[in-house]
Design a protein around this nucleic acid. Structure first.
Length: 512
RNA sequence: GGCCCGGUCGUCUAGUGGUUAGGAUGCCGCCCUUUCAAGGCGGAGGUCGCGGGUUCAAGUCCCGUCCGGGCUACCA
């Protein structure tokens, strides 16, 4: 039987990196096996559902390149793909009647207050908390009928078998068992008639032919209920895969304190989808060999459930930054320019950089003016901007870094680093050097890097400098205001004679 | 409290009874070089959570223990 998996998020907030990783594992599994990946929206909790959230999920998934074969946005043979719509279509109604008739489910009429009281009693007496029977699991038909006649509100609970062992086979951890007396009777249908996750997800998984239920390990505790439900329906149990969780640097669940949890915030910070995918795939999964830089297609080719790990992993943004740098360097320049052009115009990214909310660590307010200059440069002098980007490509980690890295190309008068100026400008060779260059560049139209190199080397040699440093460094400071950056001759070539004359003249005035 | 899951360099991980415990990142150093990167080379960093046991041999198997995490909702 071919593999059928599903990503079934509850759209109640932003799509965060943990969910992205879950979606990725399923996607890779399906694609590796030539199976089917489907998207289902679990919106049975109408009080928390948000349409914007659902839209964000779909947009994010599309951005990183996780594709689906069926889903609410593309349709498919198992439509509808939103549980609220499936409820409206009566899909769960018939199934709960089947369970009720077989005695695998029962109506329970406790009020929420009564349940709270029961929980408190259990806690005080150090008993396992939960609904293990209450007043209704063993109620007679007459009692139920009377309560119904009285119009009392009820939920429908699953009747978990007692005095037995429930075991599931987890694809990562192997066999896990429970004493069935420690598993309480979960609500299947809520008072408002909506199914809970426990019921709707399992019914849908069966109806949609899901072969592998992949989800976070926080679901392990409810797995016995789900397994029993499949048994009670007489359905074949799918394979359960409980992924380990992704933690923050404090070993607590990943939260905003660690930078960001929302995938789109990483986009705003200038991370490439390929890098995010690659990085996140390697938390909790390994190809089993010493290979780390893997593009989407490599991941698909290598993915195997056996490579999944049981232990949780910490999200190390430093390693993500390294990996993002690798992907930026590997991107062909034309593509990179296109990506950057979109990035510097992306209102969501700019908005985030201007106001990263609680994520103070990620605040990059200072970079906004620089990104604006890059945007302007890209629009008004595309070839010049492209050359500048090409020179900085191998020394940045994120798209955001291009703002700072290319800033000196676009401002008329680059900000001069004081330490650099005081170190290099007072040196005796400098005035004559600047005068020489100003004169030479004033008389030419273009300047290739070879020509610039020859010019500088000849001058250094003529003046008796054994090393290039004393000549190169003052020029670099004059042209860029900084001591670090791309190779001087490439940089000179891109700047061109006119800009160089302007900047050298200004620097010359500073020397006296 | 109850039930369940997990535990190899700081971090991500390889490892399925016999390895000097490997790789990556981060850190440090050297080389390259006009600087910074990138790249190359090298280094520090692990008593495989701890304690017992099985075995000629244990990170690998068994037991116990500690620590971390999850669940314990008419949320998912």
């Amino acid at each position: 039987m071919s593999v059928r998996v599903r990503f079934a998020p509850s759209p109640t907030g932003n799509l965060h990196v943990g969910s992205l990783r879950d979606a990725l594992f399923k996607f890779l599994h399906a694609r590796h096996e030539g199976g089917v990946n489907l998207l289902r929206i679990e919106d049975t909790d109408r009080t928390r559902y948000s349409a914007e959230s659902e839209a964000e999920f779909i947009e994010t998934l599309k951005w990183v390149g996780i594709t689906f074969d069926e889903g609410p946005h593309i349709g498919g043979p198992n439509a509808p793909y939103r549980q609220s719509e499936r409820k409206a279509a009566g899909i769960y109604e018939g199934h709960i009647q089947t369970l009720l008739a077989a005695g695998h489910a029962y109506k329970a009429f406790e009020t929420p207050e009564e349940l709270t009281l029961m929980r408190e009693y259990q806690q005080i007496n150090r008993l396992p908390t939960g609904y293990f029977g209450g007043d209704w699991r063993d109620a007679t038909a007459a009692q139920v009928a009377e309560a119904e006649r009285a119009g009392k509100a009820f939920v429908i609970r699953q009747r978990i078998p007692r005095d037995t062992t429930i075991a599931i086979e987890d694809a990562i951890r192997g066999r896990i068992e429970w004493d069935s007396n420690t598993v309480d009777d979960p609500v299947l249908i809520k008072g408002d008639g909506m199914p809970t996750y426990h019921f709707a997800a399992m019914v849908d998984d069966h109806l949609m032919g899901i072969t592998h239920i992949g989800r976070g390990e926080e679901w392990i505790s409810s797995a016995p209920k789900h397994a029993v439900l499949f048994d009670q329906f007489g359905w074949q149990r799918p394979v359960f895969i409980h992924y380990p969780v992704i933690l923050g640097t404090d070993r607590k669940k990943l939260s905003k304190r660690h930078g960001a949890t929302r995938v789109l915030d990483y986009r705003a910070q200038g991370f490439l989808p390929a890098a995010i995918l690659n990085f996140v795939a390697l938390i909790g999964w390994s190809p089993g060999e010493d290979r780390e830089v893997m593009k989407r297609e490599d991941l698909i080719a290598a993915f195997d459930i056996d490579g999944l790990q049981p232990s949780s992993g910490i999200f190390d943004i430093e390693k993500l930054r390294w990996m993002n740098g690798v992907y930026i360097r590997e991107t062909p320049l034309d593509d990179l320019v296109k990506i950057l052009t979109e990035y510097v115009c992306d209102p969501v990214a700019l908005q985030y950089l201007a106001d990263p909310g609680e994520e103070k660590a990620a605040a990059r307010v200072d970079v906004l003016p620089q990104l604006a200059m890059l945007r302007k440069g890209l629009a008004e002098q595309p070839e010049y901007a492209k050359a500048a980007i090409g020179l900085e490509q191998e020394r940045v980690h994120t798209l955001t870094d291009f703002g700072e890295a290319t800033a000196f190309f676009f401002v008329e008068e680059p900000e001069m680093d004081e330490k650099a100026v005081s170190k290099w400008f007072p040196q005796p060779q400098v005035p004559e050097l600047f005068d020489h260059l100003i004169e030479r560049f004033s008389s030419v139209q273009t300047s290739s890097s070879e020509w610039c190199e020859m010019l500088v080397r000849d001058y250094a040699e003529k003046k008796g400098f054994e090393k290039l440093g004393p000549v190169v460094h003052p020029i670099r400071v004059a042209l860029t205001g900084k001591t670090v950056g791309p190779g001087l001759f490439e940089l000179m070539s891109v700047l061109g004679p006119e800009r160089m004359v302007g900047r050298l003249t200004r620097a010359r005035a500073m020397v006296r």
